[in-house]
Design a protein around this nucleic acid. Structure first.
Lengths: 120, 120
DNA sequence: CCGTATCCTTGATGATACTG
DNA sequence: CAGTATCATCAAGGATACGG
């Protein structure tokens, strides 16, 4: 067996995981999906502990990937709104499955950890 | 609106994402799911560029979380086999959905990126 | 309000060597 | 074979300050 050096060959879903489940992207997409179109500061507060720098970076990336739509309103003070795109919305069933798996199985994970940690 | 400081409140699926989609865990679970029970070195080669140290770390974590089962055979030379657990296998439909989403939509992502990069 | 610009810290990873 | 130990590296993120 040869040693694979292409991660996408080793694991076909790796690109999708990189796209959707990078740090911060999940909370951002979730917030936009759950609470609809929002301004920058709303999003910042909603997500919790995130600095404006990082939030901007991730939003730009999501915009570039076509998962999020950014709308700039040239007013004073400026107003910018973010919303999830159709492409982003198409992830909803996936997120729902994920949430369901979690509520069904996270307690099993917790149990497994306790058993593991209790070993000699 | 108060600033949330609990990531799990801000995004209920965050814990599942941490569990399943941490770096390396996806390729490892994929390899075990696709190719069945394997020895350490097989896994190492299958995944491609991963050092034994990191592979060990991630396997230990997956074992602790109950997603992977490790079997040690006290022989000379030693033989250790890893296989996916029932809990880990229950992620299969999720992985399948993810793969399907990818094959349907990754080209849209690529296109969005080209459009974005071509802007003034 | 909506960011940008700097500087800094840290955790995850890589490289390498070694052991039961 | 299946790891462990140690050191080096590096990019993601945090802190802080500032700007249109």
């Amino acid at each position: 067996m040869e040693k694979t050096d292409d991660p996408a060959v080793a694991c076909p879903i790796a690109p999708v995981v990189d796209l959707v489940f990078s740090r911060w992207t999940t909370p951002i997409l979730w917030a936009l999906h759950e609470f609809g179109r929002q301004r920058f500061v709303e999003l910042e507060r909603r997500i919790g502990v995130i600095t404006p720098k990082v939030l901007t970076q991730r939003l730009r990336q999501l915009e570039r990937d076509g998962l999020v739509v950014r709308t700039y309103h040239p007013e004073v003070p400026p107003r910018v709104e973010y919303e999830i795109s159709d492409l982003g919305r198409s992830l909803a069933p996936l997120f729902a499955s994920l949430a369901e798996w979690g509520s069904s199985n996270m307690d099993k994970v917790d149990h497994a950890r306790q058993v593991y940690d209790a070993r000699p």
